[in-house]
């Protein structure tokens, strides 16, 4: 990677913005991992690959709701951006199936919706 300069930082950011598509983020801080986020991350990754979905699976830090870990946030076109809590393997699969593919929210695990 060429070194960034104060002149190129902003254009580099704009480039990143243009390429940002749909994504899923799994809370992978110590609190999340302790609650089983490792497996959730793996399951989602596998399922997304298996189905060949155009969605990036990423990690993120602790969103604060430790009581609700593992947390998974999903931002895909056509569905409100949502944070799921207490996600286990089954819910993880449902998130890929219902939310990402089916464009419908998964029941009983939505902890927050972000409108903006």
């Amino acid at each position: 990677m060429a070194k960034l300069t104060h002149q190129s930082l902003d254009s580099f950011r704009r480039e990143l913005e243009e390429n940002k598509g749909d994504w899923i983020k799994v809370g992978m801080s110590t609190c999340g991992i302790a609650a089983g986020a490792d497996e959730v991350y793996r399951v989602i990754n596998e399922e997304v690959q298996k189905r060949g979905l155009a969605v990036r699976v990423e990690k993120c830090g602790c969103a604060g709701m430790c009581y609700a870990e593992p947390l998974v946030e999903v931002c895909v076109e056509g569905v409100p951006r949502s944070v799921y809590g207490k996600v286990d393997k089954d819910t993880a699969l449902k998130i890929v199936d219902k939310h990402v593919s089916g464009k419908r929210l998964v029941n009983d695990h939505v902890f927050n919706v972000k409108v903006k």
Partner: peptide, 10 residues
């Protein structure tokens, strides 16, 4: 914490 849970820390 604005980025915690938002940004991929890696």
């Amino acid at each position: 914490l604005k980025n915690c849970g938002e940004v991929d820390p890696e």
